[in-house]
């Protein structure tokens, strides 16, 4: 699924990374627990989360996650957006809650993550 489709499905605002909207994403993970993301996300995935602290960007960086969608209308500070921009990580914000955002992407064909 193209990131532009993700944006459309979630009616999301792109905070940074407009130039990557033509990139593909194969799977997604919805979590507010970064340790779980570090433990279980295997493939390059899109991360949906309600957390907006810098460690979300760090977690994405370590995991090679290239896109983060903030749910429930959360907006990170400009410094966090700048940090993501420097690391070529695309950020979006959607008003949908985590459960609905994940459900919409899944029902539109985005795959799930296989745990160990």
């Amino acid at each position: 699924m193209k990131l532009s489709e993700v944006q459309n499905i979630l009616n999301a605002t792109v905070l940074t990374g407009h130039e990557f909207l033509n990139n593909d994403v194969n799977t997604a993970c919805g979590s507010d627990l970064m340790s779980d993301v570090l433990a279980f996300v295997k493939d390059k995935a899109l991360l949906l989360t309600g957390l907006i602290n810098p460690q979300v960007i760090r977690t994405a960086e370590m995991m090679d996650i290239e896109t983060i969608v903030f749910v429930r209308g959360k907006q990170p500070e400009d410094s966090i957006i700048g940090m993501a921009k420097m690391k070529n990580i695309t950020l979006m914000s959607t008003d949908y809650p985590l459960f609905v955002a994940c459900g919409l992407l899944y029902s539109n064909g985005l795959g799930n993550i296989k745990n160990n």
Partner: peptide, 11 residues
């Protein structure tokens, strides 16, 4: 902040 779930050392 998304940590402290007891996954650090196991990870």
């Amino acid at each position: 902040l998304g940590f402290g779930a007891g996954m650090g050392l196991p990870n």
